[in-house]
Simulated assay, not measured.
Amino acid sequence: MTNPKITIIVAPRERFQFARESLESLYENTTLPFELIYIDNNSPEGLRSHLKAQVPRHDFQLIRSEHYLSPNQARNLGLQHVKTPYVVFVDNDVVFAPDWLSNLVDCAEETGATVVGSLVCQYRPVHETIHCAGGTYMAPEMYTAFARGELNPSGTLGMMGGWQLQEKTPFQNQPLAEVCDRIPRQPTGFVEFHTMLVRTAIFDRIGPLDEGFCCTKEYLDFCMMVTRAGGQIYLEPTSVVTFLTHPPAPALEPSDVPYFMLRWSDQWELSNLLHFQKKWNLKESSYFQKRYQKLGQRRRKALVKPIAKRFAFLGKPAKKWIENQLFQLEKQLNQILTNLHSNAVAMAEPHALGRALGIDADFSTLPSSSRKTRRNVSSIGSSWR
């Protein structure tokens, strides 16, 4: 058998509860030869043992981090081991339709695209409701100027002014069966990291993924970098996948709570959004203002509302008051937790807080630098041949 030309990197998204199903779906629905690098992001003991047991069965490279990584940190960790012409980023909560991978590769080779994304669905039943079929993030004239490398919409060399972010995702929430004939293979402004094929050579030009994007819009940043480097981005609608944690997602399992809280912490999201604006000289639009005002809403919906709902018998005003009080308490706890991940005490006793809460997990995370990241991981198994 010839050596595979594709390496798949499975990275964490926000929880672990769908990781087994996702890995099984990957092998069941992928016929094209590939190497697999799986980033075990300080997963709970049950999943950790399961992944170790799968290594001899499927012969893949399992890289364990003893501390939580952001998605881009995990992807960069995997990239260090890629030697194939193509790399495919996959989230750990995705299930796959047959031929998803071969259709991505066919698109790349027939179009010369630098990046190719799947048509991503959401919810169960799987592969029925569209989440992302490509999209745009600037008005056409502005996008043309941006792609040419101009520093701002006026076309001057100064940084005065700013790009207006206008993200649009066509066909979102529509039934795939009703609109599939209206979604051709086509160039697009962006695709998402749920499943994304990339020509590995592009990283020699643009460098690794930006770890300043620790929780949101990392796919948009990467597509913007590819566009500025002269690359093409395509949507391949015959490659269909579904991610299982689109809000309102199923209830969190207890072992998912620590990483979920860090992944969507106020601190991570705020620093991420500020970095996004500064890096690309983006205007302070209503999009950013709303995001700043709604920090913590994912945690509120997933963690606070289910508790407050138990007090519905007291009436709506009382339940709302309880929810607001709980949310303020959660915000204070979240600040403590996100500070602990970089605290020397937390690094010395990484599982202390998880044990205190009766949760098999670690609230700490790796320092942001790749140098320190490499020191805190171990590799188990080998690449699939």
Rank of each mutant, 00 (worst) to 15 (best):
S286P: 00
G158I: 10
P367A: 15
T188M: 12
A344Y: 12
A177P: 00
V241G: 06
S382R: 15
L157G: 15
K83N: 15
S368C: 08
F193I: 01
Y86Q: 08
L77W: 01
H58Y: 13
Y143H: 10
V10Y: 07
L326D: 06
L157E: 12
P4W: 01
Y86K: 11
P12V: 06
V87I: 10
L26G: 07
K305R: 15
V87A: 11
S271F: 03
T30F: 09
C132G: 00
P306K: 14
S70I: 04
F193T: 07
F171W: 15
Q289V: 06
N92T: 10
L47N: 08
R15H: 03
G149K: 05
Y38F: 15
D210G: 02
L357H: 06
R182L: 15
I202L: 06
N343K: 08
A356D: 07
E28P: 01
R182K: 15
G207M: 03
T338Q: 07
L340W: 02
Q54G: 02
L262F: 02
E109N: 12
R64T: 08
Q174F: 03
L273I: 14
N339K: 10
S368W: 04
T2V: 04
L357M: 13
K52H: 09
A108S: 15
S255Q: 13
R385I: 07
P125K: 14
I307M: 13
I380S: 05
V90G: 00
M159Y: 12
F96Q: 13
S286Q: 14
T136H: 09
K5Q: 09
D99L: 11
E150D: 07
L366M: 13
S154K: 12
P125H: 14
N334V: 02
Q289A: 12
L270W: 03
S118G: 09
E218I: 01
T338P: 00
G296E: 09
R182M: 12
I336F: 11
T2H: 01
G161Y: 09
S118M: 10
P237V: 08
F190Q: 05
Q122T: 04
E349A: 14
R371I: 09
E28M: 11
T200K: 13
V240K: 02
V191E: 05
S370A: 14
V55E: 09
W280A: 00
A344C: 03
P258F: 01
E24L: 10
K283R: 04
F171M: 13
Q122K: 12
T156L: 10
Q17H: 05
T144I: 06
N152F: 04
G135T: 06
F243S: 03
F34H: 14
R263F: 04
P306M: 15
L26P: 02
Q17C: 08
H58P: 00
Q293N: 07
G212M: 02
R185L: 13
T136P: 01
E110A: 14
N103R: 13
F171Q: 09
K290H: 09
R310S: 03
V257C: 06
R263M: 08
S286W: 04
T216W: 12
M1E: 03
D91K: 10
R182D: 14
D256T: 02
T216Q: 11
H194I: 11
T242D: 01
L252G: 12
L353K: 01
S154C: 13
A346T: 09
T144Y: 11
L326H: 12
R182T: 13
L273A: 05
R263E: 02
Y234E: 04
V241Y: 00
N3T: 05
S118P: 07
T144C: 02
P367S: 14
P140D: 15
A19V: 10
F203W: 03
